[in-house]
């Protein structure tokens, strides 16, 4: 996503970070209390902890890397997306 806008990767980063924290926290709670969800297989692998941590880490990386920034002109800018402005073209064709 280009231009003086918030990148889609920032939104995705925020969502993954929030999900990661929630899922990992739930997994840690299960691990500590030993109170696992009934019927779920392979609970001893503690996947919520590892998967939650992975999502959280990815979310954090993307959230930071693509965070909105103030440009000199005062606009919100996104670092990785600030390549050229888009080629504007007319919609009058076709």
């Amino acid at each position: 996503m280009h231009g003086s806008r918030i990148s889609i990767w920032f939104f995705i980063g925020v969502l993954l970070a929030v999900y990661g924290v929630m899922i990992a926290a739930s997994g840690v709670s299960e691990w500590v209390t030993g109170n696992y969800a009934r019927g779920v297989q392979l609970v001893r692998l503690h996947m919520p902890v590892w998967w939650g941590a992975l999502l959280g880490l990815l979310g954090l990386l993307y959230g930071v890397k693509f965070r909105p920034r103030k440009s000199r002109g005062g606009n919100t800018q996104n670092d990785a997306a600030t390549t050229a402005r888009p080629m504007r073209r007319s919609l009058d064709n076709g």
């Binding site: 019927g39 996947m47 919520p48």
Partner: peptide, 12 residues
Amino acid sequence: MVRYLGPGLLGL
């Protein structure tokens, strides 16, 4: 999904 995903992961 129900077989392998516990709370939170199932919601995801």
